[in-house]
Amino acid sequence: MHDSLLRDRGLGNVAEIGSIGGLMRNTELEKLDGLVGEWTTTLSDAWFLEPAGTEVPGTTTVERLGESLLVVRSQFGGGTHHSEMGLVIGRSDPNDAYVVLYQDDRGVCRQFAMTFDDGHWTLLREDPDMHQRFVADVEKDRIFGRWEASEDGGKTWRKDFGLTFDRVFAQG
């Protein structure tokens, strides 16, 4: 009875929803639990930073927001190399897809499609102004990623910068 009521209200495939302490949680979102915690973050190989080889240290915190969202907050460096950015990661059950909103301290706000499986994490936007993607390999305590951009509709890509995340501790 409960399952059919959820389906009738458009709440997705009940087989994909699990119960945790009486709360409903999408099992596809549970795949992201390994991201939750605090990370030291290093921005490297940025074409826009001088001198070449400059590395900018930072921190990243990934937290749950209720049972259906993750919030990612990153801060880098200080002085001339200071930057902040954030992501809100959610899941569209009817579209069977992750959805990400990005913002940074320049006032930029963008929407990305996301995949996360088999140790690979990708974010992709294909907007009229440019195409952009984040590609990462995810390990238990380390994430190796890079941001890339394309100004020709995704035919060619250039690396904007690399990001390495090292786990400080996991949150439970």
Rank of each mutant, 00 (worst) to 15 (best):
T59L: 03
Q103R: 01
R133Q: 13
K140Y: 02
I17R: 03
A170L: 08
D127W: 06
F161I: 13
M85W: 00
R133T: 12
D105H: 10
A136S: 14
S4C: 07
D105K: 04
F161S: 13
T41V: 09
F169W: 06
G58T: 00
F161T: 10
V100D: 03
P57G: 12
L5Y: 03
K31C: 07
G34R: 05
G66T: 08
R73S: 11
E67W: 00
H2Y: 06
I20P: 03
T54C: 10
D137G: 03
R9W: 15
G78S: 14
D105T: 10
E28P: 03
Q103M: 02
L49N: 08
A52M: 13
D160F: 05
R167E: 03
E55K: 08
P57L: 09
F144T: 05
A46T: 10
L101Y: 07
H2W: 08
D118L: 05
L35G: 05
E16T: 10
T61M: 12
T27V: 02
T59W: 05
D8M: 06
S83F: 15
T115D: 09
V88W: 03
V99K: 02
T164R: 13
K140D: 14
Q111S: 04
D166L: 10
V100Y: 08
W39V: 00
E16S: 08
G18E: 07
R73F: 03
S68I: 00
D96R: 01
T59Q: 06
Q75G: 04
R158Q: 13
G37T: 13
R142S: 07
H120S: 06
N13S: 05
H82R: 05
V56P: 09
G119C: 01
R158K: 08
T40N: 04
G22N: 15
G10C: 08
S74C: 12
A149Y: 06
T27H: 04
G162Y: 01
T60N: 08
D33Y: 05
L23T: 14
D129C: 00
V135C: 01
V14Q: 04
G119P: 02
T122K: 03
S19C: 09
D160W: 11
M114A: 15
E63N: 14
M1Y: 13
S92C: 13
L163T: 05
Y98K: 00
L87P: 11
G12F: 03
S68F: 00
R106F: 10
D8W: 11
T164G: 02
S4R: 12
D160V: 07
G58K: 04
L123E: 15
F76N: 06
T40S: 11
T80A: 11
R64P: 12
S150P: 09
E67P: 02
G10H: 09
G79A: 15
A136Y: 07
V100A: 05
G18C: 01
L69M: 07
R146H: 11
P94E: 15
F144L: 11
L123Y: 15
I143Q: 10
V168H: 07
Q132E: 15
M85P: 03
P57V: 11
L23R: 15
T54A: 08
L87H: 13
R9N: 14
R167V: 14
D160E: 03
E50N: 01
G66N: 11
D105S: 09
A52H: 06
Q111E: 09
D129S: 07
T54E: 12
D93E: 04
Q132T: 13
S92A: 14
D104N: 14
A170W: 07
L23M: 14
L6S: 01
